[in-house]
Design a protein around this nucleic acid. Sequence first.
DNA 1: TCAATAACTTACCAAAAAGTAGGGCTCAAA
DNA 2: TTTGAGCCCTACTTTTTGGTAAGTTATTGA
Lengths: 121, 121
Amino acid sequence: MIKLNDRTYTCPIDVTLGFIAGKWKLLILSHLHRFNKKSYVEIRNNLPGVSEKMLSQQLKELERDNLIEKTVLSLKPYRVEYFLSDEGKSLAPLYEFLSEWGINYLKANGINYLKDQQLYK
Amino acid sequence: MIKLNDRTYTCPIDVTLGFIAGKWKLLILSHLHRFNKKSYVEIRNNLPGVSEKMLSQQLKELERDNLIEKTVLSLKPYRVEYFLSDEGKSLAPLYEFLSEWGINYLKANGINYLKDQQLYK
DNA sequence: TCAATAACTTACCAAAAAGTAGGGCTCAAA
DNA sequence: TTTGAGCCCTACTTTTTGGTAAGTTATTGA
């Protein structure tokens, strides 16, 4: 068993999963991976069904875990821009793989999803 | 939005996650990836903290989703052997990546985890 | 001056996931 | 003949996660 920051893990995979578990996290991360910088509202518009609560909660956790960062563009009014940190970028192969595998699975089931089609609509 | 088997997905990543979400699934899969074939009890012994209920439930879902298969070695007494299906093997890069990333993270935090050390103890 | 937009919070509630604690069957070994 | 191992299943409860609905501050545009 591995102990780190008051938590216990059975193996390294468990450790990694601790960062990306959560219904919207990988969706947010891969979105930022694909589009680089995005405002709060832009992210929201690309996650159909996400609530304000969930979005800000998950963004907050991702920030806390250093997978994303934000630039405050202006304080009054408050405007921000989210983007992947180096740590978040280091998970890029994961975003790519999960996406590719999903596309292949869909193809095998008769759905042709183009990688760069307008997403999340 | 993507519709498949009565479910709705926002993107291919969402589709992939549908197969591997669950507290123990990736742990089971990566264990089988590493050790090839394993009995029920061997898997259980390598997932500290898993309950019988959770284990058989997740095994059942993984079977249903064609990520793992089992050979019935004998009926009386009932003995089985679980292993990755081709579909399950196609996720191998995922198991490897999640593990590597976790090991690196641990290393960056002062914990040296050897890839082949006796796991899950 | 009123509505709309952006970027959030908060309190409360529902649903989903996971844990607890048992039971059941078969066989082999003690 | 009792115990233990192996491979599960079920009812029930708890915990975790996610959803609803509303409110906040600030600014711009009609």
